[in-house]
């Protein structure tokens, strides 16, 4: 896409002040109206775990959670993050330095090879975990079952991986839910 871009005379447009919760902390910054969330996360807050893959919403390497739902941060306007709760892969790490069960499962099941898709993959799986409360049981809460392998596949359709062939990733996802059952 880079070479496909046409050069256009640059005009100064007004900047926008945005504040949101980034990995549990309230943050704010100034941004261009046309900036996407991916650029703000990486360039302003210097969190490089969110990967720029295709910039076209195809590969899912840039997946982050906005109010617990997965979005492609490369196609999400930064101004629309204002007031939202954003979680990136850095936010998965627990305060004591241990990994989130999602990450732990990916590591334990050999679902990480080159690693470029892994942060996006972890975020998409985290979103799936949010949908199934039983994965993080709260005292007294009734279990609502676990997703089938087909459901996991459908959920991960927007995350491309060129190394693993997906089998280990699906294994990791299944075991994540089984272990938490």
């Amino acid at each position: 896409m880079r070479e496909r871009m046409k050069k256009v005379k640059s005009v100064q447009y007004p900047q926008h002040e945005i504040s949101f919760i980034l990995n549990g902390k309230k943050v704010s910054c100034k941004t261009k109206g046309s900036a996407v969330l991916l650029d703000v996360i990486r360039d302003v807050f210097e969190l490089k775990g969110t990967k720029p893959g295709c910039h076209e919403g195809e590969c899912g390497a840039c997946t982050v959670l906005v109010d617990n739902v997965p979005v492609n941060s490369c196609l999400f306007l930064a101004v629309n993050a204002d007031g939202k709760n954003i979680l990136t892969v850095e936010g998965l790490l627990h305060a004591d330095g241990t990994l989130d069960p999602v990450q732990e499962s990916l590591v334990q099941n050999g679902a990480v090879q080159c690693g470029f898709c892994s942060s996006g993959m972890a975020m998409s799986l985290k979103a799936l975990v949010h949908q199934y409360e039983n994965a993080h049981p709260v005292a007294g809460e009734i279990k609502k079952g676990i997703p089938s392998r087909d459901e996991i596949k459908k959920h991960l359709e927007g995350n491309l991986c060129r190394c693993t062939g997906y089998v280990k990733i699906l294994d990791a996802a299944e075991k994540l839910f089984l272990n938490n059952e």
Binding site: K6, V8, H55, G57, N72, L75, L77, V79, N80
Partner: peptide, 21 residues
Amino acid sequence: GCTDLLMELKRNPEENLTVIN
């Protein structure tokens, strides 16, 4: 949702354009 609009504007940027969000 801007998923299509952003792609289009990345490929064919327009001058002096305002997007009503």
